[in-house]
Write a protein that binds this DNA or RNA. Structure first.
Lengths: 342, 342
DNA sequence: CTGAAAGCGCTTACAG
DNA sequence: CTGAAAGCGCTTACAG
């Protein structure tokens, strides 16, 4: 069962494939092709179940209508929701998306960008890992349409859509302060990326503004590939029996940390929020039904995904005169649940 | 900055692009091209940063090294983990994957299959929605490589990898019975698909084998697009104050149902497992840290994803003499936590 | 051992 | 208004 091609239709009707191509691309009017013939072409195309070969189109036009998406891990619900939104918005405009999980590994992301480049994708949406500055710079140099999400490199001028992490952490910390917590800890991860760093900065600033000295022992920066036991150790140091300057609250910079953290806190027999208050970035289902539903910094994932696609497609549409650089910073909202007490 | 092509390299070296193509495809030995020239070609390719145009290759060879993946929703962690595994295994063999979320909507999946077909993907991995039998049949008719995951249509002979849902539900129900529960309910969703139906069948069989009459009032089949309030209603009917034949346990057929269910149970002020025991299919993080960690039917997602890719690639490799039909049924395991008491 | 040439399925100037 | 032809960047029979 060979697929039908343009020529098949042309032969069948005794016309040229030029004509068929024009009609099928909706340019019948433009080239003033008789309505009669237009109708026949469309009819026959349907009869023969014609499916245009996008690969051939792509080779000819240089456009594949495909976007490359590089995120840390599609199995992580944060990126899952983001990916879903991107897929959906892209589909609205006739674009497909190739998904790549880089695991925060710059070598992987390098290979993935090369692969996507060979696949002739029209543009990229990237959540760049640490040490991938060169890759991003080379995209800039090549005038390739792309937009960064979730993080960016302050020293590289390019489109990006991120969240105001400083502000988010500041407000979350403030929330704890207002509820009377004094010894607020921060558990974060050493991604070496601006988004995580800003969270800790916002946390520090809130303490400063409340005239609370910053205790570096209350800031736990775990390695990227942390496991349950690393979090458990940090928790023990912060709120365990032998903790010196026992924390009365924790700001978790990621939900992975938070989920592990809650497990550890429970294992120690401590109660949330009585023994320890908790706020976390991100809003997974787990936080809605856990022992004490968790107050969270909720990111506008849908908006990030949607805007990223729109920016990118806009850029793709104007390859010569790229639109104005867009550096979008969205606000988060603090969803208050029970984990901080009242 | 135009990309370098085969001819660029050929011109640069004063050889034919045939030769360059042979060398770069590792066929230098085969065609006994002098080592000297091979080395030069490879060198120059590197110097000029040659990236083969996969689209052109695809047009010429009819192979794109791309897989189309259609699942219900990539934002759902179940499919997220599955998708991740598929992406990873595909990448191992040099394949990329285009992700599509069908939302259990056959019209969407129809469009997505058409789109993927136009993109000339080499094969499909599909989690087919209800009423998509015709789409699958037309793939069979077209001798297109594909494998179904998570569900299948018993009346259509084709590769599929699923889990023994009957057995899983049977064992989960049995676990509740052994712990002394008598009024076991089942909350499920009306997908109209064999996987969900088998779960309820397994549940029923376990009751039968224990000589417990089946009470249809204890089986709640919610519409596919159920919301929190639909689950809340079902829960109220099962364990609310005015419930006639009050349930003492619930088997949730999906984790979305279970998560909503736990919220509702908490809202009613009931305690798990004292007032009501719970078992659920799937194993999201939420179940690990919730009020009473949930006993679950854990599916071997990694194995499903990995095997699906392997079957598919095997099929793609042998387009004429397709390998033997594979209908793989994997076992689940029951992870026992606290939600059923002891 | 190496090269000239055809062709994958399209689009699009160009000619009439 | 319509068609013949070139060409996107490859691969691969074929010839020598």
């Amino acid at each position: 069962m060979k697929k039908t091609s343009l020529s098949d239709i042309a032969n069948h009707l005794g016309v040229s494939k030029t004509l068929v191509s024009f009609v099928l691309n909706g340019k019948g009017k433009e080239f003033r092709i008789s309505e009669e013939i237009c109708k026949r072409v469309i009819e026959v195309a349907k009869e023969m179940n014609y499916q245009p070969n996008r690969i051939a189109q792509g080779l000819r036009t240089g456009r594949t209508n495909t976007i490359g998406l590089i995120i840390a891990d599609i199995a992580n619900p944060f990126f899952g929701i983001l990916g879903r939104e991107i897929e959906q918005e892209a589909a609205r405009f006739g674009y497909r998306v190739i998904f790549c999980s880089s695991d925060e590994n710059p070598e992987k992301s390098r290979q993935q960008i090369a692969m996507l480049q060979q696949s002739q994708v029209d543009g990229y949406i990237i959540s760049p890992p640490k040490n991938s500055e060169d890759q991003i710079r080379s995209l800039v140099r090549g005038h390739v349409p792309f937009v960064l999400i979730d993080r960016y490199f302050p020293e590289i001028e390019c489109n990006h859509i991120v969240v105001d992490n400083f502000d988010a952490a500041y407000r979350a910390t403030n929330h704890l302060l207002k509820l009377g917590r004094k010894k607020i800890a921060n558990i974060t991860v050493n991604l070496g990326l601006v988004n995580m760093i800003q969270r800790t900065e916002g946390y520090k600033q809130a303490l400063k503004d409340a005239n609370i000295p910053i205790d570096e022992n209350l800031i736990k920066i775990l390695p990227f590939s942390h496991e349950n036991k690393d979090v458990a150790k940090a928790i023990k140091e912060l709120v365990g029996k032998s903790a010196q300057n026992r924390a009365d609250a924790i700001l978790f910079s990621t939900s992975k940390l938070g989920i592990n953290g809650i497990e550890s806190i429970s294992a120690l027999g401590l109660k949330i929020p009585d023994d320890i208050a908790i706020v976390s970035f991100d809003n997974p289902d787990a936080y809605k039904i856990c022992i004490s539903p968790v107050t969270v910094v909720n990111q506008p994932l849908k908006e990030i995904g949607k805007t990223a696609v729109q920016l990118l497609l806009n850029e793709i549409k104007h390859p010569d005169s790229p639109p104005k650089l867009q550096e979008i910073i969205l606000k988060t909202d603090l969803i208050i649940r029970k984990s901080c007490g009242s």
